[in-house]
């Protein structure tokens, strides 16, 4: 059964619930059950937090290295360069998020306009 196999109006919504909502929220619910058993300040919580942080870091790397949409056409060197420069600016100039974001964006946009 695919998106187009039933032509009733409700089918796409059922498809979204079964193929989108269910396989997403099920992980959140399992996360609640696991998180409910973890005591604060325990080593288990340190590990769970580390796994979650490394995972979010993986999402960041994915968005920079393998982006979708219009960003996918830019050069990977430009994206890595802009991200590294932005993060370095963030660390060196008083850890302000906005500084890191702006420096990275200026480099990315300049690079894109120069067709780098």
């Amino acid at each position: 059964m695919t998106w187009q196999s039933i032509t009733e109006w409700w089918w796409p919504y059922l498809f979204i619930l079964l193929a989108g909502w269910l396989p997403t929220d099920i992980w959140r619910f399992i996360g609640v059950l696991i998180g409910g058993r973890v005591r604060e300040d325990s080593e288990a919580l340190i590990i769970v937090r580390a796994v979650a942080t490394a995972l979010v870091a993986g999402v960041i790397a994915q968005l920079i290295l393998y982006p979708s949409g219009s960003l996918a056409e830019s050069s990977v060197i430009l994206r890595i360069g802009a991200a590294v420069a932005g993060f370095a600016a963030y660390l060196c100039l008083g850890q302000r998020v906005i500084v890191g974001v702006l420096v990275a964006e200026v480099i990315l946009i300049s690079g894109l306009s120069l067709n780098f």
Binding site: M1, T2, W3, Q4, F15, L18, A19, G20, L22, P23, T24, I26, W27, R28, I30, G31, V32, I34, G35, G36, V38, R39, E40, L45, V48, R49, V51, A52, L55, V56, G58, V59
Partner: peptide, 30 residues
């Protein structure tokens, strides 16, 4: 959807992309 996946195939693909929410929620709840 645009790749013409079956309901089951689409659900598996989404489930794989959403597993990351499990440790995130587990760390968030405490």
């Amino acid at each position: 959807i645009s790749g013409g996946y079956s309901l089951f195939g689409a659900a598996i693909a989404v489930a794989l992309s959403s597993i990351r929410l499990m440790p995130m929620v587990a760390a968030f709840v405490p």
